[in-house]
Design a protein around this nucleic acid. Structure first.
Lengths: 350, 350
DNA sequence: CTGAAAGCGCTTACAG
DNA sequence: CTGAAAGCGCTTACAG
């Protein structure tokens, strides 16, 4: 932190060349004799040269174009409205660099809309892309297109294999299933059954809901003490009548269910049901702190929500992409977000 | 984000003056005719002028001196070694500005050492100070000295009233006591007793341990279902023999204790005791994720740790001070950190 | 009270 | 293959 900083000029003097030549070497802009190049690099290393980013930024006020491709909010589910907030924060944080962001929001599970949006992005020709590859096959195609165009991309929320993504920021879904399990295991007695509610339309295409389920079950294989049944069901949409149709047959008869896990952010739909039916003894655990989930957590209909900090997720994704574009920093490939355990007592501070 | 940015030059042209004059007005460096001043300010506002911080930073490589006054680590307790990490991150984040930080670490509860360190700081004459006002009276004195010298300061960890602190970053101690209570309430049966272990030498001087205790008890007044006794005891130091001396009389006889709350980061000391005694049925909750606490959490001797993100705390404190010094941004005065609930399943991701 | 000029460290044409 | 010069937007003496 102390002492005067090394400038290009210092390197140039030591090497007996001009600053232009040093710059060429440092940026690999070629056309430098091999041995002067080596000499300069050696000196730069020895002096531990770090470019002055103020000067760098001052010279290049060209705005980076960054495209962000994420789902629309749908109905009560405002999960995806949190990411833009994070992007905004990250953009402000990289001042004095200027950045131009554009959001492309596709309809969830609508593959043709997804494709339309990816085409718009390619027309815009951004320097980098941040996106949530919820639909595997279509995302794969988009990755290839970006690879061909030499545009780096960062995944958020969901990870898919066998791509050249620069990085991934998201939840360790398997582990978050385990976290949910550990809370339920503690909250209900040993012999009670547990109902697992999945709300996705098409589970195959949403790998991380699967992982949450697997993680949840794995916990009871090695660490949990609960020996009750684990019953999986699916609720296609969050509408009240649909929820009732699925849950009534279970709860209108005698049962041994002590807890429910909702593997997605639509936990409020089940909370609504339990609340109306007066089933307040059920220990309910679900995902994501926002909207109606907050209300039901506060009213202690939901016992715990598992959070994955979507704002921070987007913020970090942007930072990684930006650092790559600006400083050529290769980020750690996979970074998992902390898994937040949130109940009525600590919710206010998130 | 779009369009060309307004520069001083643009304002100067519109006002029919030179850029020097604009600069004088913008920085209140006086000596400008009143009406030109008004004209320039008006234009700057209309054009929504924002200085280019790259250019600003490039011109003034004068490093801000920031002093950080926090306790030393002591024994196994590495809590205060986490804050320097946060400061470091924050300093890197404000590049291209250069900052010179100096850490002054006082011996916990040693008032004369604290005073010695505050004198050293005043000799160094920093632009701002970040400090943990653990000892109320001595901290008060230091605040007055800083006020007189016109040096802004930010509190971390502990808040004290009636000072001119720029901001406070820390835990809502009362609420974190409630969080601990809610976990214990869920983890043990209704009629079990709860032991509250306080480890500070001098509770009066450490207000936030008191607040945690109060919050903990308050939970059982309004939300908790546990009706067992709440027994408070004090353990002066974390040494194994001292811990045994206090706890043996309790656990060597028949008792009804189902859970222990340790109100400080020295939770590991109690975990060590429980582990050695084979008291694995006790539900143990304590504070701070580091060192031996981590080990015992992993081994499920500790059920939950409450965390307050010390790294992030320091990071934010620095940012607030820096933004004030650089951009004159007045921060929100009191900002509470999120209260993290951490168990063996989500600990790995923090 | 005000303007003109130098310079922060870098990058980008341009000239050789 | 290399150097000299201009300029990014601001601040800081200096001259008047």
């Amino acid at each position: 932190m102390n002492g005067r900083r090394i400038r290009i000029k210092d390197i140039a003097e030591k090497a007996g060349v001009s600053i232009g030549t040093v710059d060429r070497v440092l940026h690999n802009r070629g056309e430098v004799k091999a041995d002067t190049k080596q000499r300069i690099l050696k000196i730069a290393r020895e002096l531990n040269y770090q470019p002055n980013i103020a000067a760098q930024a001052l010279k290049s006020p060209t705005a980076y174009r960054i495209a962000i491709l994420i789902p629309q909010s749908y109905g009560d589910n405002l999960f995806w409205d949190q990411h833009p907030v994070g992007i905004q924060k990250a953009v402000e944080a990289v001042q004095p660099y200027t950045v131009q962001t554009r959001f492309y929001r596709y309809e969830m599970y609508n593959t043709s809309d997804f494709e339309a949006k990816t085409n718009e992005i390619r027309e815009w020709n951004p320097r980098g892309v941040i996106f949530a590859p919820i639909m595997k096959k279509e995302s794969d195609t988009f990755c290839h297109q970006l690879d061909d165009a030499n545009i780096p991309y960062v995944f958020i929320d969901t990870f898919i294999n066998n791509t050249n993504c620069l990085a991934f920021l998201g939840e360790d879904a398997f582990q978050s299933g385990r976290v949910a399990a550990s809370l339920i295991d503690m909250g209900i007695s040993r012999d009670k059954d547990i109902l697992i509610v999945n709300t996705a339309k098409n589970l195959e295409n949403t790998e991380h809901l699967n992982s949450r389920n697997q993680g949840f079950l794995s916990y009871f294989m090695d660490a949990g003490i609960n020996i009750g049944k684990k019953i999986s069901i699916e609720i296609p949409t969050a509408q009240a009548d649909v929820v009732s149709n699925v849950l009534d047959p279970i709860f209108n008869q005698s049962n041994n269910i002590g807890a429910i896990l909702v593997s997605s952010s639509r936990t409020y739909a089940v909370a609504e049901y339990l609340n109306q039916k007066g089933l307040r003894e059920i220990f309910l655990v679900g995902y994501e702190l926002f909207g109606k989930n907050v209300t039901y957590l506060q009213r202690r209909v939901i016992q715990f929500l598992i959070g994955q900090r979507p704002v921070e997720q987007a913020e970090k994704a942007f930072k990684k992409l930006f650092d790559y574009l600006t400083f050529n920093t290769i980020p750690e490939k996979k970074e998992f977000q902390p898994i937040d355990i949130i109940n009525a007592e600590n919710m206010g501070l998130f």
